[in-house]
Write a protein that binds this DNA or RNA. Sequence first.
DNA 1: AAGTGGTCTAGACCACTAT
DNA 2: TAGTGGTCTAGACCACTTT
Lengths: 253, 253
Amino acid sequence: MLLEKGADDQLNRNSYEPAYAQLVRIFRRKIASGEFRPGDRLPSEAQVCRNFSVSPMTVRRVVNILAEQGVITTEQGRGTFVKPLELGTASFQLNEFLSIFEETDTTEIKILDARIVPADKKTGSKLGVNTGEKIIYIHHLITREGSPALYHREYLVYDPERPIVEAEMETTSLRGLLEGTGGMVLKNGSLTIAAVILSEEEAEILSSTPGTAALSLEHVFHDFDNKPVSWGWFVSPGDRLQFTTTVGIQDTY
Amino acid sequence: MLLEKGADDQLNRNSYEPAYAQLVRIFRRKIASGEFRPGDRLPSEAQVCRNFSVSPMTVRRVVNILAEQGVITTEQGRGTFVKPLELGTASFQLNEFLSIFEETDTTEIKILDARIVPADKKTGSKLGVNTGEKIIYIHHLITREGSPALYHREYLVYDPERPIVEAEMETTSLRGLLEGTGGMVLKNGSLTIAAVILSEEEAEILSSTPGTAALSLEHVFHDFDNKPVSWGWFVSPGDRLQFTTTVGIQDTY
DNA sequence: AAGTGGTCTAGACCACTAT
DNA sequence: TAGTGGTCTAGACCACTTT
């Protein structure tokens, strides 16, 4: 090594990339390359300050980001260590699933059904309305390159004061909901992924076979009064949809 | 309001909870309560500095955390705004799924099979070894409160130099792998959730019925030479396992 | 006592947006 | 020009762990 310094040992202070981001990248690379192995102690923050000529606050920020990313752990008074790979840190992003809606040239959203119906017992309890009360039912089919990819059924509370009907019944509104630009102001929601079997009716809609395995994504959304306003689910045959993710250190330079 | 100040308008500087964490909590609460609605502009950072008597760096940290959490967005030169709910930000944590392994009093891990086998074509290609080469095969059954919850099949590259066999064949090693304390030093892995149908053999293992819907979690792990060292999958009947998560502002005080 | 991470200050300077 | 977010400094003080 002698006195030579590589690109991993100094910052480019003229770069548009901030110093803290460069340091995050450098340390991720050092870990990915095996220079720092799981369990190893990283140089102390004071040392990093001296090595890269940056202030303690900047190093602190880098450490916080890497810890947030699950790459390192800090132990007060002891040091900062490279984390071993942990399965539990894996998270599956819904974004990936929803990205198909953005391929507007190959993806088409059709309305199969949309009307006002009386709530049955289960739907009523999900939406917090009495059985028999009027609610909105919408049935979407999403096709990719001409063939059905998944369907969406949704029940919405019927509030004449809010023009949900018009807003929601537009095909664009489904996309709007996904992107957060819908007409409704939603506070939060809960989502569930489950495995289901296609019924005869579902199989016909999706041009599939009854008894096929499928993924279901169920959702309930609440407004700022904590009242449920939407209950519904997406269903897609198992061979046309799956969720993937990665854990550990990725080789992204 | 007059001159009164509520708990949401001042910090407790004697608390063990740092100022930045208190501020994050306060702003989350203000947003959850509807005091700030999606689209609203929050007070400028300089204003927050004055209102709470904190330095700009502390406010900056708060803003970064809330932005990271997906609660707000920042626009340079314009301001900081409350984000509308976005479906795409949802992420399903594997941790929740793996938490069943921590209930050691009700969860039991049994080895159904564990031996050295020749690699078939598919397994060989997954693990990067030639067809017919020796690999390790392990079959676990995980039971909860006496009844089968899910099974795990795994193929491992056979390296006599590394005592994977002994380490991995212990029931504790599965738990170790999940927690990152296994004997192997893994760099990263890829994970896939898919819907499958239980075969007759699988149904028998799981005390279920053939044709039932099930969730499959497939995994491939790589070492620091970027070589695959493990390929396997968990399978659980759809009525015994699902993934859930939430989006938006939660009411957690 | 010395070294480690953790919080916080009170500014500086910059880039961007609105007026 | 004034106000906004964004980066960074050079310290201070604290809590904790190791020697």
